[in-house]
């Protein structure tokens, strides 16, 4: 293995995910062993209802693991308090923000909250981080616009800029390409790839754009009912992982082009 421990940002050990109510335990997936390394773009793919969101919720400490552990920088994620965690891990969710009356700049500036004082005053360091995030995302022209004036694609970029301003080693995005047209789906994912190369951050995102993810990601996590595998896209293709990802009555995976085709 070429990556040593120092490069490991997040690691799961024999992780079981699912929901726990008072009496019953509903396990969605178990025995998950993943490693996310520094400077990688990792895609999480799988069918609807397979548990992608549950996995992301467990990795971000929104819901507890049923078994096993999530290690962030070698420490279990439960041992982080909210504020320390906010300096290591930032998230972009599918839900829309509560108030769209914020300006683009104000929204991105909120990414600095873990670092600012009790009333949220921005220091020079904060302003630098915000401006860096804005220039990395090419949002200068939209800086003073209100969020309700933005298109879905623009708002998604702003939300990612906010995560960048939070200056964390790991950014986790839940389906960043939903509601976007084909061009903007490719645009956002390509641009995530560029961000990883420029900033050395680790980005994990879930997506239904398997074709695009195969072309752009360093590694892919493929969730199936019976197994979870994580490897470089070309290895996954040669192992035939995608062949039985979906029921084969409608679409089939074409190994030559690395994409799904509708059955004629």
């Amino acid at each position: 293995m070429k990556n040593n421990n120092q490069n490991t940002i997040l690691k799961t050990e024999d992780l079981s995910i699912g929901y726990r109510s008072k009496k019953t335990e509903t396990s969605i997936a178990s025995g998950i062993n993943l490693t996310l390394n520094k400077g990688e773009l990792i895609g999480l793919v799988g069918g609807n209802g397979i548990g992608k969101s549950t996995l992301l919720r467990t990795l971000t400490n929104v819901q507890p693991a049923l078994k096993g552990s999530v290690l962030l920088h070698g420490k279990t994620i439960e041992s982080y308090d909210n504020l320390t965690l906010a300096k290591v891990l930032s998230i972009v969710l599918t839900e829309t923000i509560a108030s769209k009356n914020l300006s683009v700049f104000e929204l991105i500036a909120l990414g600095r909250q873990p670092y600012t004082n009790w009333v949220g005053t921005l220091t020079t360091a904060d302003a630098n981080a915000i401006n860096a995030a804005i220039s990395q995302t090419n949002l200068e022209s939209l800086k003073h616009k209100k969020c309700y004036e933005l298109s879905d694609g623009q708002l998604q970029k702003v939300m990612i800029a906010r995560a960048l301003a939070q200056d964390t080693d790991l950014i986790i995005l839940d389906e960043p390409t939903t509601h976007l047209d084909m061009y903007h789906k490719a645009y956002i994912l390509k641009w995530l790839k560029k961000l990883v190369e420029q900033t050395g951050k680790t980005i994990l995102f879930s997506s239904h754009e398997i074709d695009l993810a195969i072309q752009l990601c360093d590694r892919l996590i493929v969730m199936k009912t019976d197994s979870i595998v994580c490897d470089a896209p070309c290895n996954l293709i040669s192992q035939g992982v995608f062949n039985n990802l979906f029921p084969d009555d409608l679409i089939v995976f074409d190994t030559a082009t690395g994409s799904f085709k509708v059955k004629k």
């Binding site: 965690l85 998230i91 009333v119 949220g120």
Partner: peptide
């Protein structure tokens, strides 16, 4: 109220985002 200024601004993103930004 003044002590809540920062929390109120964070809450403009919704509770899940606010929590991810370290808000109790």
């Amino acid at each position: 109220s003044i002590a809540s200024i920062k929390a109120l601004n964070t809450l403009l993103l919704g509770e899940n985002y606010a929590k991810s930004l370290g808000l109790d």
